[in-house]
Structure formats: C-alpha cells, structure tokens
Design a protein around this nucleic acid. Structure first.
Lengths: 350, 350
DNA sequence: TATCGTTGTGATAACGGTAACATCTGCAGC
DNA sequence: GCTGCAGATGTTACCGTTATCACAACGATA
C-alpha cells in the first residue's frame, strides 16, 4: 500500500484546482493561462471563469522550474559610486521581481582586456542574460565574448546603437540639443561645455548635440569654451576652473553630467560668483547630485529605473524566443525630460 | 521501451551533480547546504569541497517550490533619494544572492498610522522576513504589526536597540564622540552641531556623543551652536546659515550626515569662507556625497553594504529556526571608521 | 539484555507548473 | 476511400529541491 503524503502550503489555489472546477485537464488550463497552444473559444471561456472564481494566480517558482529557461539575469556594474546606481538597482530589482526572474549583481573593476575576457567568459557560464550599463557596454571585448557565448545582452544608457546589441537609452543627442537650445533661448551666447568620459559613447553624443544646437543658432563652437572631463566630480572641478579662467568668461556652462555640474557650481562659488546670476550651470542625468547642491540644478532627466526595467523585459523576451535563430536586436529609445530648476537665468547685461 | 526525455537547462550544476561528485546522496547535500539536519563533520567537508569545485548555487525556484518556506525577504525603504540607498541595495543583493534567497523591494511613502498598519499587514502576507532601514524602523506601528504576524524583522542602522527587534547598526554615540574629540584635538573650541531628523533615534545618539565629548573636554555645549536639521541638503543649508550668522562664528561644524555637511560647505563658500581654513566641516555616513564636494569631507564611515548583508544573514538564521519558540533577538553592532579627508584643519589663530 | 533516543544517511514522493508526445476529431486534397 | 494535416485535448515525465519516512549504528538507560 502506498502512503500519500501531502505537504501543500495550505491556501494557494493551483492549476489543478482550476482544472477540476472547469472540468478540464491541468494542461488545458496551462494553455489558457499562458496563452500558447490551441484552445477552443468555449474551453477558454470556461477556464477563465474558473480562474476568476478561484482567484487563481500562477506560481512563479513552479513556472520557472518547469520552464526550460533558468533565467538568471546579471547586472554588471563597474562604478559603484556612480550616483545613479541606486536608481538603476531599484529599477532592475523591480523589473526582476515583476518578471519572476532572479537578478544577480556583479561588480567589475577590470583593467586589462584579458581580465575582461576572463570575467566575461565566467559570467557567460553563470547567467542567461546580461545588462551592461556604461562604461562596460562600450567594451568590444566584453560584448563580443558574451555574444559569442550566445547570451543575450542589453546595453543600458549607451550613447549609440551597437550593431549586434540590444539597447535601452535616451536620445543623448536630442536631449543635449534641447538643453543647449534652452540656454540659447535665455540669451546666452558664450556657453561653455564640459565633455564626459571619452571612452563612453554617450559623451560624444551629448557633445554633438551641443555643437549642432550652436551651429543652428549661427554660432561656431569655440574650442576655448570646451573642456574635457571624465564624469567625475574632480574632473568637473578642473574643467570648470579652466573655463572660468578665460578672459571672457562663459555666461553658462553645460556639464555632461550632474556631478561635474555640481563641481562647477562649487568653483563658481569659491570665486565669489553667484549662480545663476553670474553664471548659469546645467547638468545631465538628474541624479541625486542635482538636488544636493544649491541652487538645485537644471538638468536632463534620464529615467534610469524605467530603463532598467525595460532592459529586463527585453532580455526576458529574447530568452523566451531563444530557439528562433533570428536573434532580434532592438534599439529602445525612451523619452528624456528637461527639468528646469534654479541654476539657470538670463545672462547679466553688464 | 520507455523514452527518456531530457529537458535540462544544460549548464546549471544541480544538487545531483554535487552529490555524485561527493559520493553522497542529494539529500545529504541538501542538508549540508541548507544547514539543517544531522550531517557528520567528514561528510560536510567532502560536500562543501564539491560545492566549491563545481561552483554550485541552489536554484531558487526549486527551493521555494519544494520547501514550505518561501523565503522572500523584503527590504522596505521610504527615502529613495537617500544617498546611501545604492550601497544598501548592493549589500542586500549580494547577501541575498549568497544566501540563495529572494530579495523584494518595497517603497513606502506612508503618512498616516493607518496606512502604515495596512501596508505592514499586506507585507506580512508577502514576505517571510523584513529589513527596515530608518526611518521605518522607528515606527512602532510597523514593527508591532510585523512582529505580531510572527515575521522576523531586522532594524538596520537604527540609533538604538529596540526591545523585540534584532538590529544591525554602528555605535552612533561612540562614533560621534570620536569625531568630536578629533575636532577638539585639532584645537577647535567653538564646534557647531547640526542635528538629524528628530524622528530617527540615530540623530539623538549622534548628538549625545557630541555633547559627551564636549563635556569631557570641560566645555559646556552651547545652544547657540546647535541647530536642528532633518538629514536633507536643504535643511543643512538653513541650519548652517543660522550657525554662521552667530556673532562669534563656530570654527568647525559637525553635521549629522554628509548631505547636511555638504550644504554647510556650500553656504561657507558663498560667504567667501575657505574650507577648511576658515571653517572645518565634518559629516557622517561616508556616502557618495562626501566625495562629491570640494574639499572632500572628513566623515564617519558606516559600512552600509556589509550591514545589509549581516541583516540578511540574521534574518535567514532566524527563519531557519522558526520552529523554536524562543525567538532570539540580536543586537549586532559593527565597527565604524573615522575617515579623514580635506575638510578639517586647525582653527585659524586670528 | 532489551529498549530507547540520538545521530547519520538514503529512498521516495511531493511541490506546481509545462514540454513533449499521444490521441482523437473533422475536413481538404488526391 | 485513403492520406495528411491542423485543431483541440489529455497523458506522462520531468524541472531541482526538500519533507517525510525508513533504517542502521551506537551509546545510554532500565
């Protein structure tokens, strides 16, 4: 005689309950609920009715266990102090939990291509999908290795669309163009620019937007008003010093991110200048840093949390269709937003 | 003849692989890995060796499907712009991944006790353990509700030990005492203090440390040099304005967190003061904000990431021993560290 | 010496779904 | 009439882990 051991968790209604109620097999219910396979209209209606009556909700664990995909998606970051890391994480976690997948964090401080290659290879073994924020998504070595292993990768907030890589990003060019146009519309004619890290494609895009807007306004970009930065606070310090040392100072400075913009404000203050009366300052990203200065920064909002969620959804979709040999590469451009705060004014007439 | 259908996921190493490698049964491996049940020392060693060699990581889905406990631990935050949220998340995620449990994020912006009660009750249904950073861990309503539901809760970075709540924190009193003593040792005699949010116990502890250190040095704390803040940048602005409006200005200002310290530097700069020559400024927490100002802040490092990991481990241990009626409450105080950077100097003699 | 409780280990059957396969219907095409 | 194929449904096996039971070895207790 066989002993029947039950260890149900008590309450939860399962697919079997629904099946019994609907007078169908569990498999049919599964087909209705997950929406693939042939089911007649009548059957579908009956099953849905039962689902509603019992308030059935599929069990994530069982689903991902039964489904062939293991679905561990890795988020690799290399810049733990980046001020938008927290927003990135929140978005990614929320997305992961919504899609019932597991998120694993990796932190890389790679230096040599060889180390990168090794790390990528190891990652390829552990994860079924990867999210790559900058600057990692710019590394040919990493992306090539991952792609070769057949692992879907999404580049997050990269400046441009990479040929074989899906991508979630804002239109850096257009955003930067808008911001510059806004400054121009306020009457500024000497607008300084602090570039971002030269290794990140977004930097170039932001710079190009600035140049294009100037050109359209009939201004030739002046090299004297353009400084190289590296997205760090410290680099912003140096760049804005250089900019403010010009004989004819800029009346506005557009920094490629908020950290550098906030450094610019600090430098201006130490020189006794008032922001925005004597100098308008704008940033990019709308991170915590933008509101942790006085005056608060006018900046471009990049919805990192939402973008991270999108990235996860993209990854999941691509994992589900893994068999289909045609790997679909998607370039998902999300809307940015100009956030006007207190760091911009018309240039003083003197 | 029976057809054997295989739908393994290919890569992932399972408990069976480990078992084969170790020459034991899967069940024994399970016992070693999950840490309950009887296993001999020898067996444990062999299994652990195999686990390490194969880089085995338990499968969440299978675990929560098979096990009665779902082991979802929730991290509830109410302050998304807090500058240490990212570190908190990184630590928590790392801990969750190490302990092979699922982390779910909740964000609460509760206002009324009723809303808090409802949210807590809902959470109690969804999570098996909860981590509560400030200010949530200060709410009697929330903790009472969660505890009543029999859910283990860990308060993170709370100022003091709560009677029925496990807790991971630094010794705010001692840290603040040390910092004040350091300022004193540099020759400062007029040390201003900006208090933190009055609703958070850590604020009081930090203030008490300051007072105690002054007293020990034979100085009576002067109310004129003490301002209320709320841990926000904006509140730091107002508090430091007030402090620097005194006829006899303080020569140093101790802000209860980095955001307020950074606001203080901004105010000083706008008044044409040099930091640290004319004013020393120190903060607390060592968040990103501490190095995103010039000069970089001398501050107290609170190892949030490590603390979050500890919190998760604590929670897991307590979940495992759930049956044991004796609920163990642990107060885990981790080491802080004085980080000396460039915002402190001896007071100018003039 | 017989009985018991503790320790250590393994076999088996769940957990709640879904993939793969089998079956059965009806209808188009030769 | 027979074949073939798509629609509709059911059966079976399996995903990776753990709860439960079974059992053996051993020392302690009666």
């Amino acid at each position: 005689m066989v002993k029947k051991v039950v260890r149900r968790k008590g309450d939860a209604t399962t697919i079997h309950d629904v099946a019994r109620r609907a007078g169908k097999s569990p498999m049919t219910v599964s087909r209705v609920v997950s929406g693939n396979g042939y089911v007649s209209e009548d059957t579908r209606a009956v099953v849905m009715q039962a689902v509603r009556e019992l308030n059935y909700q599929p069990n994530h664990a069982a689903r991902s266990l039964a489904g062939a995909q293991s679905m561990r998606i890795a988020l690799v970051y290399s810049n733990p102090s980046s001020s938008y890391l927290s927003e990135l994480l929140v978005g990614a976690l929320e997305g992961a939990s919504r899609m019932a997948t597991q998120l694993v964090l990796e932190s890389w401080h790679s230096v040599t291509p060889n180390a990168e290659r090794a790390a990528a290879r190891k990652l390829a073994k552990n994860a079924s999908g990867v999210i790559l924020p900058p600057p990692l998504c710019e590394s040919r070595v990493i992306t090539a290795e991952l792609l070769a292993a057949g692992i879907p990768v999404v580049a997050l907030a990269s400046g441009k669309f990479h040929e074989h890589l899906s991508c979630v990003r804002v239109d850096d060019f257009r955003a930067s163009h808008e911001m510059t146009a806004y400054l121009l519309s306020q009457g500024h004619t000497r607008i300084g620019f602090i570039k971002g890290d030269p290794n990140q494609t977004a930097s170039a895009r932001r710079f190009e937007g600035y140049v294009a807007a100037l050109n359209e306004a009939g201004q030739a970009p002046d090299p004297a008003y353009i400084q190289q930065g590296h997205f760090t606070y410290r680099s912003g310090l140096e760049a804005s010093e250089a900019l403010l040392n010009r004989k004819r100072r800029p009346t506005a400075i557009f920094a490629s991110n908020d950290d550098m913009a906030s450094a610019t404000i600090s430098v201006a203050h130490r020189r006794g200048m008032d922001v925005p009366r004597d100098l308008s300052v704008v940033g990019f990203d709308d991170t915590h840093a933008a509101t942790a200065v006085w005056p608060e920064l006018t900046t471009v909002r990049q919805p990192i949390a939402a973008m991270a969620q999108s990235a996860i959804e993209l990854l999941m979709r691509s994992l589900r269709n893994k068999d289909k040999s045609t790997r679909v590469v998607i370039d998902h451009v999300v809307a940015h937003q100009l956030v006007k705060r207190d760091s911009v004014a018309a240039p003083s007439t003197k």
